[in-house]
């Protein structure tokens, strides 16, 4: 749309616009500053961090914090576990969601209204923590990798987004036409719907993957073996509870090691968020799309 500039902005409007810009710039500063501060601290020397010399940019550039992480086996195991849970969890979640959402999006599918209510009700009312825990316990999933992948495999919101996408971008007319040609539903889903649904599959993959990467609570309640801990639980132990099992402190170097331990907290925060930060610019656009598709319906 061409911008008609025939009517000049009044003085009041200019002042108002200046206020808008001031507001937005201050919002950006407030959001960005803690992030920059953490990254800068993680790249500074242990001494500079513990003596509070870092304000905005790294002071006495050093990678000591990152080196400490790579010598910490808990973190490495956690990282590997998180990659495992995220990879397989996402595959299972996306597969189940697509298998469920596609029939729900078709008019010819008898029972779709009932099923929609069936899943929406679970958003309104839940059994709560205790009964859910007991179900997982009775399935003998406690302290297994399954406990992190299966009980939260399908999210209602993601199903709604997928249903909305399938309904709007794969019209019933094409489906009917293909039925005339004797194409079965499964075959149609596999060779027509999926290739057309790359955008929604990307959205689902990203949403499930980030959810899985970031979650800690299920791991905390369902897992006992440290060898199975995902990164977020390891982070909680080190950063929030301040406990590491591998802490063997040399009396002489105590001071120095404490400083490194402090510094490592900053580096850990950065390293834990790294996978998300790397894909973020790519994710952001798709995420917005997902939020928007969902809100059309909701």
């Amino acid at each position: 749309m061409a911008k008609p500039m025939s009517i000049k902005e009044s003085f009041g409007d200019k002042v108002f616009l200046a206020m808008v810009y001031t507001f937005l710039i201050s919002v950006v500063i407030v959001v960005l500053y803690p992030l920059i501060y953490i990254v800068s601290s993680s790249l500074s020397s242990p001494l500079a961090v513990s003596s509070g010399k870092v304000w905005l940019w790294p002071v006495d550039f050093s990678l000591a914090g990152y080196k400490a992480i790579f010598n910490n086996s808990e973190v490495l195991v956690g990282y590997a576990n998180s990659l495992f849970y995220t990879f397989f969890g996402t595959i299972i979640s996306v597969t189940l969601t697509v298998m469920f959402a596609y029939p729900l999006s078709r008019k010819s599918f008898y029972g779709r209204n009932f099923l929609m209510i069936f899943i929406l009700f679970t958003m309104l009312f839940s059994g709560g923590l205790i009964p859910e825990y007991l179900v997982v316990k009775h399935l003998h999933m406690l302290d297994t990798r399954w406990a992190l992948i299966i009980p939260k495999a399908i999210a209602v919101w993601q199903v709604i987004i997928a249903v909305t996408f399938f309904r709007t971008s794969i019209p019933d007319e094409i489906v009917e036409a293909s039925e005339m040609d004797g194409c079965s539903d499964l075959r149609f889903l596999w060779s027509v719907v999926l290739p057309l649904s790359k955008p929604i599959i990307a959205v689902l993959v990203l949403m499930y993957a980030i959810f899985q990467w970031n979650s800690y609570f299920d791991a905390m309640i369902y897992l006992k073996s440290e060898a199975l801990y995902p990164l977020q639980v390891v982070l909680r132990n080190i950063l929030i509870l301040n406990t590491t099992s591998s802490a063997t402190m040399d009396a002489q170097k105590l001071m120095e090691m404490n400083q490194v331990a402090d510094l490592m907290k900053y580096s850990l925060i950065v390293v834990a968020s790294l996978p998300v930060l790397i894909i973020y610019p790519f994710v952001q656009r798709h995420f917005m799309k997902g939020v928007l598709i969902g809100s059309v319906k909701g």
Binding site: M99, F100, T122, L139
Partner: peptide, 25 residues
Amino acid sequence: HWQFYLLIIPAVLYFIIFKYIPMLG
């Protein structure tokens, strides 16, 4: 459309086991 019903079985089981049984629970 029997294949549709085949497709939704895992998800329906999922909702029954992990959502509705806890509600009863």
